[in-house]
């Protein structure tokens, strides 16, 4: 419960102040809500995907910290024009690097952004009832760290109880 020093990078600060691709996308092909079991933050990812499985545009909303806003923003910029297969391969580490590094206590914020993207991609194929062979059958680490709303609510109430008992 102690505080952590947070020397955010210039890039994080810039994207926090002027996030790119912010807001709900009315004509999205797919969206995914993802919650962070660590801190309770949530994001929503919106993707517009064409019939070549290429992401035409992406946007996000974030109920989270500055690191989360910045990493989400950078992910939406990065995936624009990418094939889903390539977008899937983006790692949270590469995002963290691109953003000038994340403080250790904030790794989960970047993981959440990538997890939400993958959740959206998986949902897209599920809706299409298709399974490309590059798509891992089992949930990846990042997806597991990006919970659906209900799961998140459950974990948070457990966490609150634990904190209470402590």
């Amino acid at each position: 419960m102690s505080r952590a020093p947070l020397p955010y990078s210039q890039k994080i600060l810039d994207l926090f102040r002027n996030p790119k691709n912010l807001g709900k996308m009315e004509d999205a092909t797919v969206s995914a809500v993802a919650g962070n079991p660590a801190c309770g933050d949530m994001i929503t990812f919106y993707l517009k995907i064409n019939d070549q499985d290429v992401i035409e545009k992406a946007s996000f909303e974030s109920y989270g910290c500055a690191a989360n806003i910045a990493t989400s923003s950078i992910v939406t910029e990065k995936v624009k024009g990418m094939k889903l297969e390539d977008a899937w391969k983006i790692t949270w580490k590469s995002i963290a690097e691109e953003i000038g590094g994340l403080p250790a206590v904030k790794f989960h914020c970047g993981i959440l952004a990538v997890g939400a993207l993958r959740r959206a991609i998986r949902t897209y194929y599920k809706n299409k009832q298709a399974t490309p062979e590059w798509l891992p059958k089992d949930q990846t680490f990042e997806e597991k760290q990006a919970l659906e709303e209900e799961e998140l609510a459950k974990i948070l109430s457990k966490k609150m109880k634990m904190a209470e008992e402590k």
Binding site: R3, C39, G40, D41, G64, C65
Partner: peptide, 21 residues
């Protein structure tokens, strides 16, 4: 906020007075 804490737990005082997450 949990986001400001090392262990990512929100303030124990706010939890104790029954504030939701």
């Amino acid at each position: 906020s949990a986001c400001t804490r090392r262990l990512l737990q929100p303030s124990h005082v706010l939890i104790a007075i029954g504030r939701i997450f």
